[in-house]
């Protein structure tokens, strides 16, 4: 695992710093004055009820949604200022979607090398070696010739993770990676993510899997109606929430 990412520095180094971020859809303000930062090697989970803006926040970070205001400072640059380099920034942020979104015209290996070759201009050989390394990591190296439609949901998601890792991102964004999966497949994907977290990769995970969030996160962010209502270490959020709405949400979710 040691080659996956640089080991987390002993002194903390901010990789993403979000300041006063806002997002409007038409008249509706879905994100309101979000301030939040992530350190290198940190694993942050975002929880909150449906419609609270978790996906929108994640999608703003890699500019799949264009924020309406504020700053997103990624590795020292405000990425909202030089929109020309959008694609450059995106290669450094891996994204895993709820609905997998594999490229249906390509097989498993093709999915993992196309971005490396076309965007990072790696040779096919180099890209293949890298792809195989990550496919092996997620346990999908036997399936390199399979097309997405021939895979189960859990297998697709593991390929999607390998595809994102193959770009050597500095941070991985996960948007409810297990929500579309049959229960028996959830474990496989969570195991892969747990390994990644242990390897020191910086991760931001939107999830409804509370046990998982408690288990892997360095920090948990609770969102409610477009604002960050509370954040802190998992023990605090899950065992000792300070805010009334955090308590209410956890009562509803954990039963």
């Amino acid at each position: 695992m040691d080659t996956l990412a640089q080991p987390a520095d002993t002194q903390t180094e901010t990789i993403i710093d979000i300041q006063h971020l806002s997002k409007f859809f038409g008249e509706r303000e879905v994100l309101k004055d979000i301030n939040f930062s992530v350190n290198k090697g940190e694993v942050v989970s975002i929880i909150g009820s449906s419609g609270s803006g978790k996906s929108t926040l994640l999608r703003c970070i890699n500019l799949l949604e264009k924020p309406s205001g504020g700053k997103i400072i990624f590795e020292g640059t405000n990425i909202l200022e030089d929109m020309k380099d959008v694609n450059q920034h995106r290669t450094k942020m891996g994204m895993v979607f709820q609905s997998f979104n594999l490229f249906n015209n390509l097989d498993v290996l093709g999915n993992c090398i196309v971005g490396q070759m076309k965007v990072l201009k790696r040779s096919k050989e180099e890209a293949t070696v890298k792809a195989l390394k990550y496919l092996k990591l997620v346990g999908m190296d036997q399936f390199i010739h399979a097309k997405p439609k021939q895979l189960s949901g859990g297998q697709k998601q593991r390929v999607a993770i390998a595809r994102a890792l193959s770009m050597d991102p500095d941070v991985m964004l996960f948007d409810e990676p297990t929500s579309a999966l049959d229960p028996e497949m959830v474990g496989d994907v969570l195991d892969v993510m747990k390994n990644l977290a242990d390897s020191g990769l910086t991760m931001i995970i939107v999830t409804h899997e509370m046990d998982f969030a408690r288990d892997v996160s360095d920090r948990v962010v609770f969102m409610d109606q477009g604002v960050i209502a509370e954040e802190g270490p998992p023990e605090q959020i899950f065992n000792n929430p300070k805010q009334e709405r955090t308590k209410a949400f956890l009562r509803r979710t954990l039963k």
Binding site: N62, R90, M95, F103, N104, K118, V119, R163, M167
Partner: peptide
């Protein structure tokens, strides 16, 4: 979703279309 996944790994419109 496939457009978004392609954009998320840094492909531009033309690369997304072609590949």
């Amino acid at each position: 979703g496939q457009f978004e996944a392609a954009h998320a790994i840094g492909m531009n419109h033309f690369q997304t279309m072609m590949n």
